[in-house]
Design a protein around this nucleic acid. Structure first.
Lengths: 190, 190
DNA sequence: ATCTGATGAGTGAGCACTCACGCACATGAA
DNA sequence: TTCATGTGCGTGAGTGCTCACTCATCAGAT
């Protein structure tokens, strides 16, 4: 019938948005994103109805990349600790290899623009992650509360380890190991 | 010689900014802040030359409140662990008692608008805190690197414990205790 | 030939910040 | 104590800019 929409432009827009958002956060102007992607500003709005839609799509896109990286060499048969450490190392390695994507994701995570359904969709990208944090309870908390709390602790410790590793890649191995030790104890002893 | 500037208005502006920033982040409009403070928009710019100046002043103001709270009952003669736990508990209690201030501070911390000198000034507000995190080294890191890393880990664990305690005050005691256990091991064993 | 993607100047809303004016207040002379 | 004086605060409509988003028009795939 007519000209089809280009998958290339879709990807180019997401990649351009990653770079601009990493630098400017939510203040990233759509005009700049479009220019970086090599398309007109109007074209951006043909692919993403509003900036909010773009921002949510970008978040899911980045989470997708991250989750793919996390599952690298994932062996469901390995011990809990081995699985946890593999995911942990993949996470930090991904952060070091993709600092821009990583920064953009952090910016989006605190932006307040990510809809609950986007978060829900992101969780489904790596179902096997669920099982990793439900090994035991923290004293004084029931299983559900404890699991949520532990998950949040793990994410925040990982975030710190990753940001330090990124800043000082020479020490990455030490940050990885120390961070994992802290987290592993959080998962199993606390 | 002339009409003096009003300390009341200065305070009112900082308090209004706290509320609006907690809700809107950096996107908080100066017009709304001024209205909430009960002054004209032009007045805001008589007290703070630019929005960036206001934002930095607000950060320091909130850090000041926090540091005062942290030092509640601080006993330099107590054991390291006792001092650490006292500060820890004060921190979480402050977060529960001042959710708005706490949210505003988090928003400012990630805004990228806080100048290095503002951060430097904030650190000086509670010098005794320095000594709390320099007990030992993490394996593979020298003392300085380890200290900075440990400090960041502690802050992020505290942040999580506080946000969970805030959301679910009934469980606050459990989150406080679990979080402190995690952090204490981080400080001493890792 | 036809329909739809691509374009970029245009639009209106919202923003930080300004400024000319009115007035409150500290000061000093009486 | 009283009052004249001038300094500088308080004001809010105004200014210029940036932004997300639109639309009339063109270009190209089928």
């Amino acid at each position: 019938m007519a000209r089809p929409r280009s998958e290339d432009k879709h990807q180019a827009l997401l990649e351009a948005a990653t770079e601009i958002v990493a630098g400017h956060g939510l203040a990233a102007p759509t005009a700049q994103i479009a220019r970086r992607a090599g398309v007109a500003e109007g074209t951006l709005f043909r692919y993403f109805a509003t900036k909010d839609v773009l921002v949510n799509a970008l978040y899911l896109h980045l989470k997708g990349q991250l989750c793919t990286a996390l599952q690298e060499g994932f062996d469901p048969a390995a011990s809990l600790k081995a699985r946890a450490e593999a995911v942990w190392n993949n996470y930090i390695d991904w952060g070091i290899a993709n600092p821009t994507a990583c920064r953009a994701m952090s910016q989006l995570a605190v932006s307040g623009k990510i809809l609950p359904e986007t978060h829900a969709a992101a969780v489904k990208l790596f179902p096997a992650l669920e099982g990793l944090t439900s090994a035991c309870c923290l004293s004084g908390l029931d299983a559900n509360q404890s699991d949520e709390f532990r998950r949040a602790l793990m994410a925040s410790v990982a975030q710190v380890a990753m940001s330090f590793s990124s800043t000082d890649p020479a020490r990455a191995a030490a940050y990885k190991a120390s961070g994992f030790a802290v987290m592993w104890r959080t998962l199993t002893d606390a």
